[in-house]
Design a protein around this nucleic acid. Sequence first.
DNA 1: GTACTAAATGTATCATTGTACTAATTGTAA
DNA 2: TTACAATTAGTACAATGATACATTTAGTAC
Lengths: 140, 140
Amino acid sequence: MTEKKLTLQLDFRSGLPIYTQIVNQIQSQLANGILAPGDQLPTVRALASELRVNFNTVARAYRILDEARIISTQQGRGTYITEIPPPEVSEKLRNESLAALTNRFISEAFRLGFSEREISQMVRDSLKSWKEANVKENEK
Amino acid sequence: MTEKKLTLQLDFRSGLPIYTQIVNQIQSQLANGILAPGDQLPTVRALASELRVNFNTVARAYRILDEARIISTQQGRGTYITEIPPPEVSEKLRNESLAALTNRFISEAFRLGFSEREISQMVRDSLKSWKEANVKENEK
DNA sequence: GTACTAAATGTATCATTGTACTAATTGTAA
DNA sequence: TTACAATTAGTACAATGATACATTTAGTAC
């Protein structure tokens, strides 16, 4: 399925933030098969209009779901239910997913003609700069 | 060479704009000799169709590369790798392409929740098995 | 060879969609 | 009330998509 109506019921008096309600209901609709991987969700503006809410509120809900890898939001394109649900279900799967990701990276690097030395050096550099950026982040 | 398949790998969830990914990967492939001066690139529509992307997105990438004198786009004719690319940028381009590839890999791995230790260990393993496979290859 | 037509290709412009940043609003505790 | 934090809304912007157009090429009829 590619298009979906996505009927959500908001309760403005529940005390539960709207974005939380959106997150919860999308999650439960996915769990119940009402939404399926690959489904396109309404645009932030369309859903916001239907719910009589600001589109940034919908965007916030989408961002949370995106960070949880439940949906994939793509600027200029739309938002979709993630095709492959988060692999953190088991340690084995988790390890396999890193192996697959790494192998894709290594094979691409070799295909581009880089040497083992160049690759491992660049990995060290990249890890280092990422760590430094993260330290700065925590200092704020 | 005049015609080229030009295999590109897009990541719609990386946060990196699609046109940037196209620019980077074409630069990489040129820097590594996969593409050569004089090569004709796919038409904006052909590449867009293959990548499941709007052809204006490809056109944008081509325009950036054209402004950098890396390719030459000619309305009604097609786009070609510039015959004489500035040689002094080759090594720089090559290094940048590995850096970009590595950074995409690292950030994706972190985003999936893997630790620095897990990542570097997996890179070592992957490099090792690649090397072993290559040794076997040479023994044949 | 010339003129015409059609197809292929890149270009220009605007609409659609998500993002970032900021301001206003609301609820709550001191 | 006042102050503070959380939530929601407003505004500007960036990335992508849709559509119409201009240029070049190649074919075809004459």
